[in-house]
């Protein structure tokens, strides 16, 4: 059983949602990045999503763009990111780790090689931001062969036949975007109960909401809409960049996953 399903089941038994914390690997340097990964788990994160910095992140807003730039400016290489994941895995054997990155980094060494390295480092899933379901099949086949869960993205405007493809190709969880546009804390996220229902109907992996989740109210609203969990990215990355207490922020957001009594 995968770390994701184990985690979702364990939390569901306690009537809790999953809280995922996103960090950019190597931001602002390797040592600080390693400490931040530990800090979000200490703060209560149930799962960790990590970005491998890319020079041209078209799906990201200013906060995540800046994080990737800090890492790349510090000389962080893809191999350093795999080493950070391996180090995290040795300290946290049960926490699911998902990678969020872009297609060209995967293509560079060859897809199969990249997936094997991700798997050997100890990560559980991969989400490629510029890989829609339309192009995904050869990629998800390679991910599964390397024992990785392919995570695909669904949005309010995703048509039914694409949701069926996502259900067929994806595993681990389904990343549901809270609104159109790019990552970051701007505009109010909306948690579409209808999207959750359509994903359930398509028998897709559990829905987890992301994009713009920065407050306890957001977390409660997402879980209230039927999500299995949430991922908060820009809020955590901003806090880290500004030297605020990342563990405390995670604890606040995680706590909101416990207050929800809506049936799931």
């Amino acid at each position: 059983m995968s770390r994701y399903s184990t985690t979702f089941e364990r939390l569901a038994a306690k009537r809790e949602g999953a809280f995922g914390a996103f960090l950019m690997l190597g931001d602002p340097n390797i040592e600080t990045s390693a400490k931040l990964l530990d800090a979000v788990v200490a703060g209560g994160a149930d799962m960790v999503e990590v970005g491998i910095p890319f020079s041209d992140p078209v799906a990201d807003g200013p906060v995540i763009q800046a994080a990737a730039k800090r890492a790349l400016d510090a000389g962080v290489r893809v191999a350093d990111c795999f080493a950070l994941i391996a180090r995290f895995r040795s300290g946290h054997p049960d926490v699911p780790v998902g990678i969020l990155t872009y297609a060209n980094l995967v293509m560079a060494p060859g897809r199969e090689t990249f997936f094997r390295r991700v798997s050997e480092a100890g990560a559980d899933s991969m989400l490629v931001a510029d890989l829609p379901a339309f192009e995904a099949e050869p990629w998800t086949t390679g991910m599964r062969a390397a024992d990785l869960d392919p995570v695909l993205i669904a949005a309010r405007n995703t048509p039914a036949d694409t949701l069926r493809t996502i259900a067929w190709l994806g595993s681990g969880y389904t990343y549901c975007v809270t609104r159109a546009g790019i990552t970051g804390v701007h505009g109010e996220p909306s948690f579409d109960r209808e999207l959750v229902r359509r994903l359930e109907q398509a028998n897709a992996p559990p829905p987890v909401f992301g994009f713009g989740i920065s407050t306890a109210e957001h977390v409660r609203a997402a879980l209230g809409a039927g999500a299995a969990g949430v991922i908060s990215g820009s809020a955590i990355v901003s806090a880290a960049a500004e030297g605020r207490d990342v563990g405390a922020l995670v604890a606040t957001l995680k706590n909101a996953t416990r207050n929800d009594s809506a049936p799931r």
């Binding site: 078209v58 510029d130 829609p132 192009e135 695909l152 993205i153 949005a155 405007n157 995703t158 159109a180």
Partner: peptide, 9 residues
């Protein structure tokens, strides 16, 4: 067509 899913429609 390698774009975020949101742009596919």
């Amino acid at each position: 067509a390698y774009v975020p899913e949101i742009l596919m429609p």
